[in-house]
Amino acid sequence: MNQEDVWLAQARQGDKAAFGNLIEAYQTPVFNLAYRMLGNAGEAEEAAQEAFIRAYTRLDSYNPEHKFSTWMLSITSNYCIDIIRKRRMQLLSIDEPLPPHPALMSAHNLGPEAQALDHEQQALVQQMLDSLAPDYRQAVALRYWYDFSYEEIAEVMDTTVSAVKSRLFRARKQLAEAYVAV
């Protein structure tokens, strides 16, 4: 039994401190996915917190045969898709320029010049992601930041491997066209 399994078992008994360790371990992947999906740090923080709360209240339904990270990211991406749908229903524009946020910081300690370049790169990547449909965005984020296999992406997205391949194919095609146009 590894440390993660111990925390999970304790969290199932209602031990919040143990669940806190899991939050600490998975906060970056969960927040990063939410940010890549939503393109907004405030909403990403809210979505990441909500994903952890949902995970905590549904710990009994977690199947230990699967990786906890996959389950956690699946909850996160489903919640983000819900937010995007609601956002559409409220007719809010997602093309508005994103405000700078302190969350736009990588884990590395960078100098001012490198930090500016890093911010520029993050902004460019996010702009490109925002131009994609949510399910394409989801597939690209899971492929690049989590290094997931097609099978793992399919598990998180609750779809088939061929659908994942197709989404990645189309997403990359769109990104390449946008890149060539720029």
Binding site: T28, N32, Y179
Partner: peptide, 27 residues
Amino acid sequence: SIHQLFLHTPALSPVAGFTQRTLARLP
């Protein structure tokens, strides 16, 4: 180019204190 750009774009972390903020909201 896109592949390399995405591969070398680091993951973003939340603002410090995320765990405490989330724990405070747990039922």
